[in-house]
Structures are given as C-alpha cells and as structure tokens.
Design a protein around this nucleic acid. Structure first.
Lengths: 231, 231
DNA sequence: TTTTTAAATTGACATATGTCAATATTTATC
DNA sequence: GATAAATATTGACATATGTCAATTTAAAAA
C-alpha cells in the first residue's frame, strides 16, 4: 500500500495533483486504505445533486461536467473538469450532501476516498489544509467572474467568455473537441441552444470562431477577448 | 492582551464569530498582536478590488456590501454583510490581491488582522483550518445558487431571490431597512434600476412586497417564494 | 427656508433574446 | 444498409427588458 497512489495522479499523463503535494507516504496510505476506482461511460452520473456526500473523488481519466439542476427545470453547467482534479463538492464539512451533479462527458475513471480519511489527513497536515483553502479560494475567484458575466452581459459576451474558459482553463488549446452539445453550451452560458447556434454562425461568417459539431477552433482570439470584455 | 478579543465579537450583540470558536487564548493573542480597528462612514471603502491583500478583516459594526467592478463598467453586488463576519477575500493564499471591493453602507467598524498572523494560527490549529474550509464551502454553495438565479431567471425571479436573501440571510426579518439604493438593488440582481422599480411597483399593487425608499416589507412571503422558484 | 444636488419614478421606444414549429442533419439501433 | 431517434439548424414571431429622456421626489447644502 505504499506504492504510488493512483488517486493523486492522472492515468494518462501521470501528472500529480498539486493539492496532494504536501502529503507524506503515510498520509497517502491513509487515503489509499479506503480508496477505490470506478469507470464511467459518457452520460453516466458520478455524483448526484442532493445525494449523500460520503466520498471525495478525483477524476483520473476522461472529461466530466459539474452541473446543477434548479427549480424551474433549468440546468446550468458550473464547470468542465479534466484530470487530475478533485470533484469533492462544497457539502464537505457543511451538510454532507452533493450540491451539484457530476456527469461523465467521455469514458472516465474516478477514485473515491472516504471523507473521514480525507478529513483525518486534513487534520494531521496543516500544509494540506492550507492548500485546500487556497484551492477553494481559487474556486471562489472563478465564481466571482462567472457571476459578473452572467449578470450584465449580452449573448456574445457570455459565449465568448465560455469559449475562452474552455480554451484556456480546460483544453489549453485554441482548437479542441469539447464533448459538449449545443444544449450543454447553452447551460454553460445561460442562453438557449438556438441563441448559441446563432452566435456561433455569426462568428463562423466573421472568421472569429469555427466550429463543427462539438469541435471548436478559435481563429481570432483577439476579437473574442474584446467581445468578452465589452459584453 | 489576554482580554476578550474584540476582533472576534460584535460590538453590538457581543456575539462571537463561530469561525473563531476553536481558537485558544494564545492563538487569539497571536491575532490580537497585529490587530487594529478602523471606523468607516457610509460609502467609504474598506477594501479595494485589485489592491494588495495584506490583512483579513472582521466586520464588527454596521453593514457593508461586497461588490465587483467589471470590465464593461457594470458593477455587481456579491453579498451584503453584517457583524460578525470575516471579510477576507479569496485572494488569501492565492495571489494576495483583493478580488472585490468592500464598501460601508452605514457607519461601520472593522478589525484588521495581518495575514501572516492569520496564516500562522491556521497552521497551528487544524480545527480552525477545517472551520475555514467549511466556511468557504458555504460561500461556494451560495455562489452555486447565485449562478443558477442569474443564468436562467426573469426579473421577477431574480428580484424575489434577492429580497429573500436580504430577508433571511442578512436582516433576519420580513421588514428591514436595506441601506441599498435602487441602483444597488439592480447590481444585486443583474437588472437595471428602472426594471427594479417596475417590479417593485407591480408587487406593491399586488400586495406582495411593500417598500418605501430603502425600507422593505415582505407582505406575502409565500407568493414571493413561488415567484423565486418559478423564475 | 431656499437652493442645489442626487436619487427615484415614469413613459415611449428599440431590440435582444426567448419561444415555438418545421426541417435538416447526425447518431444510434436494428 | 435501412430505420428510428436524437440533435442541430433555421425562420417567424412575441415579449421581456434595456435605453434614453423627462419629470418628480427626496436628500443635502447653503
């Protein structure tokens, strides 16, 4: 059990999750004791909103969307995540419930760690706890921007922000296969799928962004950034 | 210096901030060493977005709004805070910058604690660190709802959510003096001030919410909740 | 008080964006 | 490959909501 903990590294790139950098071998073992891996097909649910939060998970392979189902039947995607990341959920140390649903967009695998193991290590290792606080603060900063975008922006601004987010934060490339349907894009931006289609068409004609199915290519980043800023 | 730390209690109600419940006398002293109090008049800036985050503050008296200035000249209010609360900011342990501006809405006083003192205590006291993680998770949960509201709701739904937020989370009463202008209400909901006025007028006629200046009274909570849910 | 300034309100109007239905295209299933 | 199902696209249309200017009211200053 002292072997390199799979739950902290990506199956593809073997990149270590920076959040876990401060853990000792013993602490990794503590988490490993309860650790198990699960594989998912596209569309399968990893965590369900409202369900009990008994485990923290790390996404080790594939792509997933974190989304919320809200009252009026409207859904919104909070983020798109790739390996290696923690998909714990903010119910941890609060109400032990999931506040969002996590769904695999591609074939994916996740490692589950019991929350009591996770908590134990947090208590033991103050460096790890500070890293966790830093991680959460980064999430909050992202939410700040998200709220700003949604509150006072036109479709073009919101969609531009979303594409820049996918390009920079998720796929780290100007052309990428998003694995997101038009409906998903709508739920990521707070628009309707028809509006997403119209703006994408407009940009295709203007040579700003090209797209075919769920494949996107940002042709004129400068324009897109300007659109995102102006709103 | 072993006297009861003002920075962790409200000057009015003397309520202790639950986040600080686990601190020992020595740890309170550590924070007290660098602690100082500042008084503000309405409209004065406590923290400025973009400025250096050198201190964490606790709001001990008065009311403040946490808001963002964004690119297109549009502002949005993230939250309205009352004593006792931490107004640290998510730049802590990230980039040590402020990501929002904090402005006093009434006469207010805040205690400043140097971030190195704060960090030192977080490192020493794992219970405190876990409380901090719990606190941040609660913030994230609130943002989830906020994002949901902004993304796919009509004016009525958004304004209803805002009034319920003020009533339940901030003022804990069905009638309250908000200290918020119509413009502030607009920035809290992602609407224009004109739209805020129109919806409030509509509700006044229907007997759902009464308001005069910045004083609000929720007359029919049930209706308001339904409006918020339907969107 | 009077004067000045800021904030709130109202109305007319433009338009951005959602809704709905029809069609086309892609993907899945047999 | 043929059929069925899901998804994407297009167009016509309604309306919610922002914009702008004028007016009223309230607050601050003199």
């Amino acid at each position: 059990m002292t072997e390199f903990c799979k739950s902290t590294s990506c199956n593809d790139c073997n990149k270590r999750l920076s959040l876990f950098r401060s853990l000792t071998k013993e602490q990794l073992d503590t988490m490993n004791e309860s650790r198990f891996e699960v594989h998912y097909a596209p569309g399968e649910t990893i965590f369900k909103q409202g369900g009990p939060l008994t485990h923290i998970a790390t996404l080790n392979q594939g792509l997933a969307k974190i989304h919320m189902e809200s009252q009026g039947g409207h859904n919104h995607i909070l983020s798109v995540v790739k390996p290696v990341c923690v998909i714990g959920g903010p119910g941890f140390l609060v109400d032990n419930r999931h506040h969002s649903t996590v769904t695999a967009l591609t074939d994916a695998s996740a490692c589950f760690i019991r929350i009591d193991s996770f908590k134990k290590v947090l208590e033991e290792n103050s460096r790890f706890a500070l890293d966790m606080i830093s991680y959460l603060n980064k999430v909050v900063i992202r939410h700040y921007h998200r709220i700003g975008n949604l509150a006072h922006k036109h479709m073009q601004g919101k969609l531009a922000e979303a594409l820049i987010y996918l390009s920079e934060d998720v796929f780290e490339s100007n052309n990428f296969k998003s694995h997101l349907s038009r409906q998903d894009m709508a739920e990521l931006t707070g628009m309707t799928k028809e509006s997403v289609i119209r703006v994408l068409k407009e940009w295709k004609e203007e040579g700003v962004v090209d797209c075919k199915s769920d494949y996107f290519e940002i042709l004129n980043k400068e324009s897109l950034v300007k659109i995102a800023r102006v709103g």
